[in-house]
Simulated scan of single mutants.
Amino acid sequence: MTLYAAAPARRARQLLGDLLFLAWTGAWTWAGLRAHDAVLELAAPGRATMNAAGDIAGQLRDVEDRIAGVPLVGDDLTGPFGGMASQADGLAAAGASLVETVGQLALAVGLAVALVPVLLVAVVHVPLRVRFVRRASAARRAVRQLSAGDGARAAALSELFALRALANQPVRKLAAITGDPVAAWRDGDEAAIRRLADLELRDLGVRR
C-alpha cells in the first residue's frame, strides 16, 4: 500500500496535511472532553440532593424502627416518620433523575463539540487520501507486473501512463517536457513518452 507520493514536494504536503488533521482531531477531542466536564458540573446540586435525601431517609427509617418497639404507642408514632422517609426518598429520586439527565446532556454536548468540526474536515481530507492511496497502490502493482514482462509490455505501460499524463497533468508541466506533447505521444517519441509517464507516476506516488 502506497500512502505518500514519490515526489518530495507532494509527499511533504501530504505529510503536513495528515499531521494537521491529527492535530485538529486531537484539539477538538480535548475541547469535547472539557465541554463534557463543564456540563457535568451542573449535576453537582442534584448529586448533593440525592445523597442528603438518601441519608435523611435512612435516618428516619432507623428512628421509625426504634419507635415501633415502644409498647402501646409505637405503631401510632411511626406513621409520621414513615411519611417523611417516603418524601425524602422521592427527593433523592428527583436528584438522581437530575444527575442522569445532566450526564446525558454532557455526553451529547461533548460529542457535538468534538465530532462536528472533525467530521467537517474529515469528509474532505479522508476521501482525498483514500483516493490517492488506491490509485497509487494500483499504479505500483501495474508497474511491478509489467516491468517484469517483455519490452513490448513495458513500452505499452509507458504509453498508457503518458496518455494519462496528457489527460491529467497541468499544461505547464507537459510543456516543460516537450513543445508538443500530444504529437510526441502520437509519433511514439520514446524519450518524451517516458518522461510523460514518469510525470504521471510521480503524481500517483510511484517511481519506476
Results as ranks from 00 to 15, higher is better:
Leu128Ala: 14
Leu115Cys: 00
Ala52Thr: 07
Leu40Thr: 02
Gly179Cys: 02
Gln14Phe: 10
His125Ala: 15
Phe81Leu: 01
Asp189Cys: 01
Asn51Cys: 12
Leu22Lys: 13
Glu190Cys: 09
Ala108Phe: 03
Ala136Phe: 10
Asp189Gln: 03
Ala92Arg: 09
Gly74Pro: 05
Val206Met: 03
Arg186His: 12
Gly79Trp: 01
Leu128Ile: 10
Val73Tyr: 14
Ala12Pro: 05
Phe21Lys: 10
Ala142Ile: 06
Arg66Phe: 02
Ala44Glu: 10
Ala96Thr: 03
Ala192Arg: 11
Val113Lys: 05
Gln59Lys: 15
Ala176Gly: 05
Pro117Thr: 12
Glu64Gly: 07
Asp198Thr: 10
Met50His: 07
Leu201Arg: 09
Leu160Arg: 04
Ala191Leu: 09
Gly26Lys: 13
Arg129Thr: 08
Arg194Glu: 14
Trp30Gly: 11
Leu40Trp: 09
Ala136Tyr: 05
Val123Thr: 08
Leu91Gln: 15
Ala7Pro: 00
Ala48Gln: 13
Ala7Met: 07
Thr178Asp: 11
Glu100Ser: 15
Gly74Tyr: 09
Gln104Cys: 13
Glu190Tyr: 10
Ser86Gly: 11
Val70Lys: 03
Ser147Tyr: 14
Leu91Tyr: 03
Ala94Tyr: 07
Gly17Val: 06
Arg153Phe: 10
Ser137Thr: 15
Leu16Gln: 01
Ala88Ile: 06
Asp189His: 11
Ala27Glu: 12
Thr25Pro: 12
Ala92Ile: 08
Pro127Ile: 00
Gly103Asn: 04
Glu64Ile: 06
Asp62Ile: 12
Leu199Phe: 11
Asp65Val: 09
Val70His: 05
Leu105Met: 12
Ala156Phe: 00
Ala68Phe: 01
Ala183Pro: 13
Val123Arg: 08
Ser97Ile: 11
Ala57Gly: 00
Gln104Ile: 14
Asp18Leu: 14
Ala114Asp: 05
Ala92Glu: 00
Ala165Met: 08
Ala136Pro: 01
Gly26Asp: 08
Ala27His: 14
Arg141Ser: 07
Val143Glu: 07
Leu33Cys: 00
Pro71Arg: 07
Gly69Ser: 12
Leu42Cys: 08
Gly82Tyr: 02
Gln169Cys: 12
Leu19His: 12
Val133Ala: 11
Asp89Cys: 01
Pro181Gln: 02
Leu33Lys: 05
Arg13Ala: 15
Leu19Lys: 12
Arg194Cys: 01
Phe21Gly: 06
Thr49Val: 13
Ala12Ser: 04
Gly95Asn: 01
His36Gln: 10
Asp75Glu: 11
Ala152His: 02
Ala48Cys: 02
Gln104Ala: 13
Gln59Phe: 15
Ala31Val: 10
Asp150Asn: 11
Leu91Phe: 05
Ile67Gly: 02
Ala92Pro: 06
Ala48His: 03
Leu98Asn: 13
Ala148Tyr: 00
Leu40Lys: 09
Ala31Pro: 09
Leu91Asp: 15
Asn51Ser: 14
Val99Tyr: 03
Asp203Met: 06
Ala38Glu: 06
Leu157Trp: 13
Ala139Leu: 10
Ala148Met: 13
Val73Asn: 00
Ala38His: 13
Ala44Lys: 09
Ala114Asn: 11
